[in-house]
Design a protein around this nucleic acid. Sequence first.
DNA 1: AATGAATGAGCCTTCATTCAT
DNA 2: AATGAATGAAGGCTCATTCAT
Lengths: 197, 197, 197, 197
Amino acid sequence: MPKVGMEPLRRRALIDATISAIGERGTLDVTMSDIAGRAGVSSALAHHYFGAKDLLLAATMRHLLSELTADTIAALKGTETPVARISAVISVNFSDKQFRAETIAAWLAFYVEAQKSTALRRLLRIYGCRLHSNLMSGLVHLLPRDEAHRIAEGAAALIDGLYIRHALREGIPDAATAVALVEDYLDAKLSHADASR
Amino acid sequence: MPKVGMEPLRRRALIDATISAIGERGTLDVTMSDIAGRAGVSSALAHHYFGAKDLLLAATMRHLLSELTADTIAALKGTETPVARISAVISVNFSDKQFRAETIAAWLAFYVEAQKSTALRRLLRIYGCRLHSNLMSGLVHLLPRDEAHRIAEGAAALIDGLYIRHALREGIPDAATAVALVEDYLDAKLSHADASR
Amino acid sequence: MPKVGMEPLRRRALIDATISAIGERGTLDVTMSDIAGRAGVSSALAHHYFGAKDLLLAATMRHLLSELTADTIAALKGTETPVARISAVISVNFSDKQFRAETIAAWLAFYVEAQKSTALRRLLRIYGCRLHSNLMSGLVHLLPRDEAHRIAEGAAALIDGLYIRHALREGIPDAATAVALVEDYLDAKLSHADASR
Amino acid sequence: MPKVGMEPLRRRALIDATISAIGERGTLDVTMSDIAGRAGVSSALAHHYFGAKDLLLAATMRHLLSELTADTIAALKGTETPVARISAVISVNFSDKQFRAETIAAWLAFYVEAQKSTALRRLLRIYGCRLHSNLMSGLVHLLPRDEAHRIAEGAAALIDGLYIRHALREGIPDAATAVALVEDYLDAKLSHADASR
DNA sequence: AATGAATGAGCCTTCATTCAT
DNA sequence: AATGAATGAAGGCTCATTCAT
């Protein structure tokens, strides 16, 4: 078997292993050896490809982020009404691929780590902005700008909260219910807005 | 001369130091020495009083929880309408005492740690149930039971989400806005319910 | 046995162990574990007292330096003629205490390490200046200032060279011969100076 | 297409890279990767050609030594008086080619390493003997054998000392001054000898 | 001829924890 | 009541070295 061109494979395997390790333990506090072991390589190789633990973690988060972005773009493609756009954005966050114990735990761990790591915080901020603007792209046609902004914030917070609660297996457990809650929130706010016009 | 009756003072000082350390660093990943140092004692003493790091952390979380409980009880005392009860519960979570960077960071860190620690998870579950039942105590008079349940879940998730976002200094920053968002959510759902009756 | 007040003893033991380890291996490239082992403690304790390997090495060099200084001061005390001062300075460098394989090897290792470590370089520079001024304190009465300066440099270089050669067990092996060579150099230069006057 | 006859070029490039790396860092403590990188090849190739780090270092030292030997032979060619021979030997050691920061640092590093490596010590001993006999080839005509021997030792030590001091940028910095000091030493000793005859 | 891939061994450092005083 | 002394265990990281291609 050819022993060349392994780099992308190893990188990917290591990132997957990182998600798996973090997801299972629920913390970024996993060892390089554990991660490397899951990827079937030595910890030295992980260092070889990523340089340091921080960098592997950051790369992993970037990976998670780009997957979410890709999914969102795919979901938005073909939507036509503002309401459809909003629904698409929400449902992506709770899709089978994103709303998995493993992934959620990883997101959460990153959220907390972001409190001390500037690099991670920057990445999370990007995600926050994207989510916000994606929601806005629908809401802005249905509500006054200020109100749209507020509602987008609320929806984002609600999504984050549902993630947290899911991770701790408290309350709302399944994706469908979660989506319904967020949609519900927006429906209520939108019809409320209509009514008050 | 050996001082007597120091125990409660030391315990309290150590718990405060723990909150401060976690709050500042944004992680439970603080050393016993750091905590003990902030409390002005040796790390050996921290062990003497709490037995182990886990136990000190659990005690700290219990402390946070009991403060919140006490505040909530105080806030509920004297409320008379269901709506007032709901507002009281919400406002406690964003009161000056609770909604401080330090405390929030600590809560968050505990949330994440709870993913691996059964002890912490149990404590958090208690908090979750209390919040839920406190919200229910108002909602149940205004909505059908099932619906009340759902809305309580939503409100709880929203609160958690706002905490997280505050910790990362993303979006909604101040308590007033946060409260308004939650109240707004409930208002919308309540009037929506009214309207559909 | 009392377990208190160990710090100075441990520090000293660790410094001695460092000299011994470096002396035996001929390099600063010794492990903390090796050093700690020689001192009969764990490597963690070495870190506890010195913070890091660099700092232990620097402390060790400082120790060597201060011993040399103390010996020199003692040797100079009671000297009366310029020539006696010069002889005293030279003989200290080749005294039984200083001119030992272990100590010499350590000095040499430090010399080389100083090329990359600013901290060590600074320390060595101090030693260089002291030696120079000690030599000058005698020479200045016997030669014109410029010439004295030059001769002091030459003598210092000669001493360094003899150390190196001793460390490698090449040529001149014993202290007496070494001293004689340096004295000889100075005698020659001094009488030469006389003659040319 | 595979290039042929690369071996000598690569070997030379690797040796040069080794000198450069050691010279820049002031230690033998350089990595194979660093060296290979400077030579523009992979570290695996360095192993391919030299077998191991030790061997590359030894080869490098041998190279340094043979350059010095060649220079010395060239310098001696054409000298006619004993004094001229001595001067030639000295000046080679401080020639532009030899007395360069890079080369000096490398020599020094090798000196120290020689304390633990028998192979390097053997090489250095060869150099020591050559220097000694080269100096003797002049001195022996001017002084009694014993005295010539001693003076040669002194001169060699002085040269070594000047190297060390140059490496640490302490005192005597330039080659001319260094040469003058050594010549001076010999002059003094020689005239002293004359005078006492 | 040359290299990317891969690893084992080892080192520095940190930290919770224990113990004697 | 309180602490300095001390350590074992573990983790991140580096590096020389090997191997298949």
